[in-house]
Amino acid sequence: MTRGFDDRDAMTEEELASIRQRCEKATSGPWISYIEGRDHSGGSNFIMTGNGNKRGEDIELTGATNSDQDFIAHARQDIPRLLAEVERLRKHLPKKMSKSRCTKPTAKEAMLNFEFLPCRSSDQAS
């Protein structure tokens, strides 16, 4: 049985920065998965990197399923978009919430039915 997401799972700014840095260091996109028999005939499966005059080296994987290859290729486009979405959503968090991960709603916020991250016992004041 898997446990649900809680505030201990929230990513730190440092973790997000590390993910962003790995994306920036990777070969430029877009990455497109080509599966032999599905997307082309003859040759092997590969991931095409870049396009036009910014085309990079093809990536060939060993031991990957077609689904693995599709996932890896899509990650090049998906991860930067996810990072941008996290950044956009965090801008909408109340300032005290985005800093402490543990907040209690004001009366007005509670009336407006805002959702808040649960407090861990170690975060609560004694």
Score class of each variant (00 low, 15 high):
residue 1 M to Q: 12
residue 2 T to Q: 07
residue 2 T to M: 06
residue 3 R to H: 11
residue 7 D to Q: 15
residue 7 D to Y: 10
residue 9 D to I: 01
residue 9 D to G: 02
residue 11 M to T: 04
residue 11 M to L: 03
residue 13 E to M: 01
residue 14 E to D: 11
residue 15 E to C: 00
residue 15 E to T: 07
residue 15 E to K: 13
residue 17 A to S: 14
residue 17 A to R: 03
residue 18 S to D: 14
residue 19 I to K: 03
residue 19 I to T: 02
residue 21 Q to C: 05
residue 23 C to Y: 09
residue 23 C to D: 02
residue 24 E to A: 12
residue 24 E to F: 03
residue 27 T to W: 08
residue 28 S to N: 01
residue 28 S to V: 00
residue 33 S to H: 13
residue 35 I to H: 05
residue 41 S to C: 07
residue 41 S to M: 09
residue 41 S to H: 09
residue 42 G to W: 01
residue 42 G to T: 07
residue 44 S to Y: 11
residue 48 M to L: 02
residue 50 G to D: 10
residue 50 G to P: 10
residue 51 N to V: 02
residue 52 G to T: 04
residue 53 N to V: 06
residue 53 N to Q: 08
residue 54 K to Q: 00
residue 55 R to P: 02
residue 58 D to E: 14
residue 59 I to K: 08
residue 64 A to E: 10
residue 66 N to Q: 06
residue 67 S to K: 14
residue 68 D to S: 05
residue 68 D to Q: 07
residue 72 I to M: 05
residue 74 H to G: 10
residue 75 A to I: 06
residue 76 R to H: 10
residue 79 I to R: 12
residue 82 L to R: 13
residue 83 L to R: 10
residue 84 A to Q: 12
residue 85 E to A: 15
residue 85 E to P: 14
residue 85 E to T: 14
residue 85 E to N: 09
residue 86 V to F: 11
residue 87 E to W: 09
residue 87 E to T: 10
residue 87 E to S: 11
residue 87 E to C: 09
residue 89 L to F: 07
residue 90 R to L: 11
residue 92 H to C: 09
residue 92 H to P: 12
residue 92 H to N: 15
residue 92 H to Q: 15
residue 93 L to N: 04
residue 94 P to K: 09
residue 97 M to G: 13
residue 98 S to Y: 03
residue 99 K to V: 09
residue 101 R to A: 14
residue 102 C to N: 02
residue 103 T to R: 03
residue 103 T to C: 13
residue 105 P to R: 00
residue 105 P to G: 01
residue 106 T to A: 05
residue 107 A to G: 12
residue 107 A to D: 08
residue 108 K to N: 02
residue 108 K to A: 13
residue 111 M to K: 15
residue 111 M to S: 15
residue 113 N to P: 02
residue 115 E to W: 10
residue 116 F to W: 07
residue 117 L to F: 07
residue 117 L to S: 04
residue 124 Q to I: 14
residue 126 S to L: 14
